[in-house]
């Protein structure tokens, strides 16, 4: 069979590279019976439409940034709660804790979870050096979701919505002075052209997930199904292995290009942890049962 798999990000990104390898492995394992074409960078289906396209079987498989499913159910928000899991170790643990709930929610809308690939941790890009939160007081910070907006509020900044393509110009013309994003995005958009300081606060570690349409999966024979599941296991393992390397090399690129990269001061870290605690409580209040379960599993 010939399958199609849209992915949201370009070929330079780790999740897309892993998707190509994943498709290749399945083709090998099934000796060409299942041939999956990867359509990167939203070239087949726009990012926001990918979940729907997989759900309804317009494409058999797809990759999506977990965070954009946050409005569907609070369990998906485990992916972008600030200062809940800030190392890859913790992120992996959190993912294991959240997986059953995530699988259940995806299953409800006709999708089966295959694997996840993490991004490097989200950190703080600013026009000015930041030692404590008071250095940011009154600055305008990019927000793109209720939780980033809340975070900006708690950090004492003014949340401002800017669409991704407008970011460079928004910094240069002074519409915003701060944003939180991953070092990869910073490298992709050559952040050194428009912003000088990078404080490695490691706010959260978001993930992309790859899902398959349940009906399409069930229609395959047992061997092919196993080939997919096995390739998925490899892809996920490879993802965790590579993302740490990627984070280090991206950070090095920021330094090479003259950005001032620093670790957060202990004081800043304390302030941010307190904000994290507040936001975790607020998240829990959204769905006490499911979120509570995730938190218990994660914290024990």
């Amino acid at each position: 069979a010939k399958w199609h798999m849209p992915t949201p990000y370009g070929d330079g990104n780790l999740p897309t590279q892993i998707a190509y390898g994943f498709a290749e492995e399945i083709k090998d394992k099934t000796s060409g019976d299942l041939d999956i074409t990867v359509h990167s960078a939203g070239s087949l289906v726009k990012h926001t439409e990918i979940p729907r396209a997989v759900k309804t079987g317009q494409v058999q498989m797809g990759e999506v940034f977990l965070g954009i499913l946050g409005n569907e159910h609070p369990v998906f928000k485990h992916d972008n709660i600030p200062f809940l899991a800030t190392s890859f170790e913790d992120a992996k643990k959190l993912w294991e804790a959240a997986k059953p709930q995530v699988e259940q929610q995806l299953d409800k809308s006709g999708m089966k979870l295959l694997y996840a690939v993490a991004w490097p941790a989200q950190s703080l890009y600013t026009k000015m050096p930041v030692n404590t939160l008071s250095d940011l007081a009154g600055a305008k910070m990019r927000a793109y979701s209720p939780s980033t907006s809340r975070l900006a509020d708690l950090m004492g900044t003014t949340p401002t919505t800017i669409q991704v393509p407008d970011i460079p110009q928004a910094f240069s013309t002074g519409i915003i002075q701060a944003m939180i994003t991953s070092p990869s995005t910073g490298v992709d958009s050559q952040a050194w052209d428009y912003v000088s300081y990078y404080t490695d606060v490691k706010a959260w570690i978001p993930k992309n997930v790859v899902v398959v349409n349940k009906r399409a999966f069930r229609r395959l024979d047992k061997n092919t199904q196993n080939a997919i599941l096995e390739a998925a296991k490899h892809a996920e393992a490879l993802g965790w292995e590579k993302v740490a390397e990627r984070a280090a090399s991206d950070k090095a690129k920021l330094i090479d290009n003259g950005m001032k990269v620093s670790d957060p001061s202990p004081e800043l870290l304390n302030q941010l942890q307190a904000i994290g605690a507040t936001m975790i409580e607020e998240w829990k209040a959204e769905a006490p049962k499911e979120v509570g379960e995730i938190l218990t599993r994660y914290q024990n």
Partner: peptide, 11 residues
């Protein structure tokens, strides 16, 4: 039917 909501600020 599927209660689809948008991904932005307001669902």
């Amino acid at each position: 039917l599927y209660d689809e909501v948008s991904y932005g600020y307001i669902p």
